[in-house]
Design a protein around this nucleic acid. Structure first.
Ligand code: FES
Ligand code: FES
Lengths: 178, 178
DNA sequence: CTATTTCCTAGTAAGTCAATAGTAAAAGTA
DNA sequence: TACTTTTACTATTGACTTACTAGGAAATAG
């Protein structure tokens, strides 16, 4: 029997069917990357326009998919756009005033849900009485991180101190034992 | 005796189509509730068996769906079961040794994913160079909360102090500088 | 006018989620 | 043994979501 050499390709190695509690969607990921490109341009000239295709090739993202993402970000007031020749996109707010939570909410809706409902809306009978507080704490933790980091923080790699503390924890960069 | 199991998704106003970054699935929610029922029994007699239907009616959860959840929890070593008359389910570990992260991982897989991949596996070119650290921090925050709370903590409503601090925070829309 | 570029609607294939049906296997009771 | 109870497992369903793509309408510059 011939030995099969597994391709160790980080990019193509997708996780199994079920996604855990936290899932950063393609829209959120691509949107953040597009915005970081716009931040780079903003720091040279806050009014400079960048074309969608330029962003797409810089970040290697499908261009038509990215257009829709940028449109959603414009509808949320995070980016501005201009049509026609010499058109494009630019940031419409200062990079220090746009948090990751703003981006995720603009693209994927409310940060946290329990069975599709808001955590505070779910009722728990009997023995599970206090479970709601747990899910609310989960949402609070997510808010704490995502509302505490701005586009500028990511662009300059100057994350808030409590976030860098999180990253310094043992095992933060490794997956948990399987 | 034939007791009618109540319909599950009662009148709850479901959120809009897209779920945010954090989604507690029905499996994770139902699973936690079932385990909290088992904790209550465990505190009386650690070997007492509870039937699936009893858990289902106590928590108003579809019984066949719950059976599959309990089976997954057994395969993960959290729950033990016995078949036949007088059979049922019980906790197989001390409630203080089972964290919420254990439960979520058993039912929904790895805690966090970025476009279906592990956070440490995604590569970011150019301006988005430091985005990976953000997603890893998100996962670390989620681990911090979910690995820090045990079933016993929830059952007795004695959450860790940093979690209660999280719950007490004004939170929301406030930027912090590093 | 023409070329460019964003805006918008409407798809689609693949997959996931929540839940159900039906049957096999084990364990107790008589 | 036969019978009942209860979990174990497989397969399937319908609704919905995700990650895109197609094609054209509308705006803008030269
Ligand atoms: S929002 Fe949690 S500590 Fe500030
Ligand atoms: S896991 Fe985050 S501080 Fe301990």
């Amino acid at each position: 029997m011939s030995r099969v050499v597994q391709p160790v390709n980080a990019v193509n190695e997708r996780m199994t069917g079920n996604n855990g509690a936290v899932h950063i969607s393609a829209k959120a990921d691509y949107g953040m990357r597009a915005l970081l490109e716009l931040v780079a341009a903003y720091r040279i000239d806050p009014l400079q326009l960048i074309k969608g295709e330029a962003i797409a090739t810089a970040q290697q993202v499908p261009v038509k998919f990215l257009e829709g993402i940028l449109r959603q970000l414009r509808q949320s007031g995070i980016v501005a756009s201009q049509r026609g020749a010499e058109g494009g996109y630019r940031l419409d707010r200062d990079p220090s005033d746009v948090t990751i939570a703003d981006v995720v909410r603009a693209l994927d809706g409310p940060l946290a849900a329990v069975r599709g409902n808001r955590p505070e809306d779910v009722e728990y009978p009997g023995a599970s009485e206090h479970l709601r507080e747990v899910w609310i704490a989960v949402r609070a933790a997510m808010r704490h991180v995502l509302e505490g980091i701005s586009l500028e923080d990511v662009a300059l790699n100057k994350l808030p101190s409590d976030v860098t503390e999180l990253l310094a924890e043992p095992g933060a960069w490794q997956r948990r034992k399987p």
